[in-house]
């Protein structure tokens, strides 16, 4: 039998930083994939010993800290950038990053986030945009697409009552304190690889001491969207990416 086994080469495996926690995300949710990506990038950069993560309210809150084996705290709604500010100022050698959803960062915490960018804090934010409030049951988020149905926009998001979707990386790119701002997805293997690169650059900016770095992940929320996991991938390609184009919006090696 042994002779019939082809010569196998291990090209990937379970990340060392992935805890034994079984995972808490819904089938088809991309947060688990992003958590894995975070594990891999932190390992590759060799910063697991000095990484401190701050998870926003929502699906990041317990899931990220329970999944990734570095120092963590969960944060009240939208306040992760303020908390991270103090942690980084006190421990300048640590690599401090926040993981925040669209409601957390884009709605209740937008002021807190923008002011941290304004101060040019040396932090990294992973912004998870799935266009709905997942944990609370699929309500409208600031990033909900026009016409998209949520439990608080039962007829679809209307412009005249609910305004426009929010573009966080584009907004961040206008801020002088920001060194890196990009949007990516993990909904195809190719995009997964691009996202890995973006995340790595973002952390590298912090390691180089250059301002604030941000990566948005457009990601799926099957229960929130009322779609099965595969249809979610199409929804991302056909709808989400129309509103939220992928790419880098800012990438500088020094601040003005």
């Amino acid at each position: 039998m042994e002779n019939n086994v082809p010569d196998l080469k291990k090209i990937t495996g379970r990340p060392k930083l992935r805890t034994d926690f079984p995972g808490m995300y819904c089938p088809g949710c991309h947060y688990g994939i992003i958590a894995r990506l975070l594990c891999e990038v932190i390992e590759e950069l060799g910063i697991e010993g000095k990484a401190i993560g701050l998870a926003g309210v929502g699906c990041s809150f317990g899931g990220m800290p329970l999944t990734i084996d570095v120092d963590w705290t969960s944060c009240p709604h939208g306040r992760a950038p303020a908390m991270a500010t103090a942690i980084k100022r006190i421990h300048p050698d640590a690599t401090v990053f926040t993981v925040q959803g669209d409601g957390d960062l884009g709605a209740i915490g937008l002021g807190c986030f923008m002011n941290a960018l304004g101060r040019g804090e040396n932090l990294t934010t992973v912004f998870l945009n799935n266009a709905v409030y997942g944990t609370t049951g699929g309500q409208m988020a600031p990033t909900t697409l026009l016409g998209m149905k949520t439990t608080t926009t039962p007829l679809g998001r209307e412009l005249k009552t609910s305004g426009y979707p929010l573009h966080i990386p584009e907004l961040a790119a206008t801020m002088k304190g920001v060194s890196y701002s990009a949007r990516c997805t993990v909904h195809t293997p190719a995009n997964f690889q691009k996202a890995r690169k973006a995340l790595k650059i973002a952390f590298q900016k912090q390691l180089n001491g250059i301002g604030y770095s941000l990566v948005e992940f457009v990601s799926a929320c099957p229960p929130g969207w009322g779609l099965n996991p595969l249809d979610c991938l199409d929804f991302i390609s056909e709808k989400m990416l129309k509103e939220y184009p992928l790419g880098e919006f800012k990438n500088v090696d020094s601040l003005d």
């Binding site: 701050l54 705290t73 944060c75 009240p76 306040r79 303020a82 908390m83 991270a84 500010t85 103090a86 942690i87 100022r89 006190i90 421990h91 002021g111 807190c112 002011n115 101060r119």
Partner: peptide
């Protein structure tokens, strides 16, 4: 030491929370 003027008292108290978590 470090002094940070926050954007609001809400900002202040969460910086304090972060600073407390950092052990200082």
């Amino acid at each position: 030491g470090v002094f940070v003027q926050s954007e609001s008292e809400s900002g202040s108290i969460y910086m304090v929370y972060g600073g407390g978590l950092a052990g200082e």
